[in-house]
Design a protein around this nucleic acid. Structure first.
Lengths: 342, 342
DNA sequence: ATGAAAGCGCTAACAC
DNA sequence: GTGTTAGCGCTTTCAT
């Protein structure tokens, strides 16, 4: 069917090993033979069978990347950052979408294993949960290749984390709002069973106390990460007698939902409410107003995830958890609170 | 290193073939042996080496999917739809991102070839161009596996297209605007060198004539598919003495840019301008106002692309081009034009 | 520098 | 039913 090194070898009147040598450049080949072989490779547009290569080589120079849902711009950004980082180091990437389906998640892990990838990176899904699923931890610990994720897998000895310092992000958001003069700050969206959200929320509660502000339970509105979550959480905040003047949203999508709910009421951002979101994806630059958002530095995140994975593949000894400090991308969704009309 | 069927066979006191048989269930195996083998597979969490499987089998039950840029929600939607369609048929997907880089595009084609995928699907990049790159057509025609894309590759005998009827989308948008009473309709964003955009534009020009409306060159503003393109195209329309009252945007992203530009002027959508976009992605449901957008039916598109690819892989004879008719997702970005103040 | 040969892990004829 | 054997296409000793 397809052309093989044997076909090339026969036509070039050399041995298959010689063809293999020019392919891998692992050994010297005389210039004239090399030229002959290269000419035929060109002529037939020959592509060595990656399966056969992978079968005989010890490493595949391949990384498996699993994300929760590529349709979420956050995951799309991270995957591209990882792919760029991997390619830069001569590695290829297998990208898979768990579509937020726990069964698929396990299947993908198995598929990566059977593809003999050199490392696995997972972003989202079960690695994000506050309480790690012991079943999943066992699966991960049974892996024979390095495993890196943005979240910590509790109780795992084999999983490494390279993630974002969620608390530092809240620090940035909170002090930005304080500087503008806000004192009634709400926390919107997400689920507390997600570790990064839980950490954001804890830090938010802590900062309220540290700044002498009351911690009001009705200023914390859980509800998820989608647009509708933002809408309904915001509606609940709008229904309060004593409304907040500023909102920290768990991500860009829920923030856009919050803005929509605010507009429904005939109110506006940032005049009536200041909003800071997290992720700083496409959405935050496409929204009206442009969203002030906590930025993770996707390039660094990709570099870190891939770097960690490959260092592990080389059996280097590295810390089991590393955190990146986010920055604040200030845009147009925050302002000083309105003076109370007296 | 890793467990193989030989290890399993030895421990189960059967031959490797028997293990292979329970793996593939291609032949009968006695119940007790099967049980023994399955127990060991379980015990060692054995994953057959996909590389070795692919090497000895004739087909890999694998499809290579290349998209221009997964960060664009349109491509994200299409890839997920394709992945779902492929999985449903028992196929796995390799997803690759060309990152709008022509060199990468060729590399990905080669990589898919060397992974011995059963078919290749490409969405975006060079398959979208109005004038197909002959170099690329040659590459595609040299492929030994079926090739399907959303766009037509001119002069190719091996490339199949399963796409969207761009003209029908314009028909929907145009008549919706006409019914609302608009007569000054502009066309915003994109590049005419992209086939689908060119077709939209042609149809737009045709419909103007067919409805007795003048074709004004300053009502057509090319500029690309990103947010900034929408902003600058819209600014140019706003600078006209005789402004349009409705805008057909080439995609959701440029439409959000247009809205931002309109807001800059203190004007609003849909009160001052009606906007219809294309793609009906996440953005159109996250925007204020919600965007009326031409919807492609991503599920059907994915089914069609994958179905075409697999039918070709089975050497079925099918039409070289198939078009899907889009629908209009009516939301809140269109209204009747303001009565001219007399 | 180059060829012969073994082996990577699996599947599929082929015997029995 | 089950084992034996021959590939699948490549890399890599090991000779020469």
């Amino acid at each position: 069917m397809a052309v093989t090194i044997y076909d090339i070898a026969k036509e070039a009147k050399v041995s298959p090993s010689t063809v293999s040598r020019v392919l891998t450049s692992n050994a010297k080949v005389s210039p004239e033979k090399e030229r002959a072989v290269r000419a035929l490779i060109e002529k037939y547009n020959f592509q060595p069978n990656a399966l056969a290569q992978g079968l005989s080589e010890t490493q595949s120079r391949t990384i498996g990347l699993m994300v929760a849902d590529i349709r979420n711009p956050y995951y799309a950004e991270v995957s591209v950052a990882c792919e760029v980082a991997a390619n830069k180091r001569g590695y290829k990437m297998f990208l898979s979408n768990a579509r937020s389906n726990p069964e698929l998640e396990v299947e993908i892990l198995e598929r990566f294993t059977s593809l003999r990838v050199d490392a696995i990176i997972q972003i989202g899904c079960r690695v994000d949960e506050l309480e790690s699923d012991p079943e999943y931890v066992k699966k991960v610990d049974n892996l024979s290749v390095p495993f890196v994720s943005t979240g910590v897998l509790d109780g795992s000895k084999r999983a490494y984390a390279f993630g974002i310092d969620s608390m530092a992000g809240i620090d940035l958001a909170f002090s930005h709002l304080l500087e503008l003069g806000h004192e009634k700050i709400a926390f919107l969206g997400g689920w507390l069973r997600v570790r990064s959200t839980y950490q954001k929320w804890m830090r938010y509660i802590y900062l309220l106390g540290a700044n002498g502000l009351p911690a009001r339970t009705d200023y914390v509105q859980e509800g998820g990460y989608v647009f509708e979550a933002g809408v309904s959480c915001m509606r609940r905040l709008l229904a309060l007698d004593d409304r907040p003047t500023a909102i920290i949203a768990v991500n860009d999508i829920s923030a856009t939902g919050a803005i929509a709910a605010i507009r429904e009421e005939g109110l506006s951002v940032p005049e009536d409410f200041s909003i800071i979101s997290h992720d700083n994806t496409l959405l935050s630059s496409v929204c009206v107003p442009l969203l002030t958002s906590v930025d993770y530095g996707y390039e660094k995140l990709g570099e870190g995830l891939v770097g960690t994975a490959l260092r592990l593949a080389k059996h280097e000894i590295i810390p089991q958890e590393t955190l990146l400090t986010p920055t604040l991308s200030v845009k147009n969704s925050c302002a000083r609170p309105r003076k109370p009309v007296s």
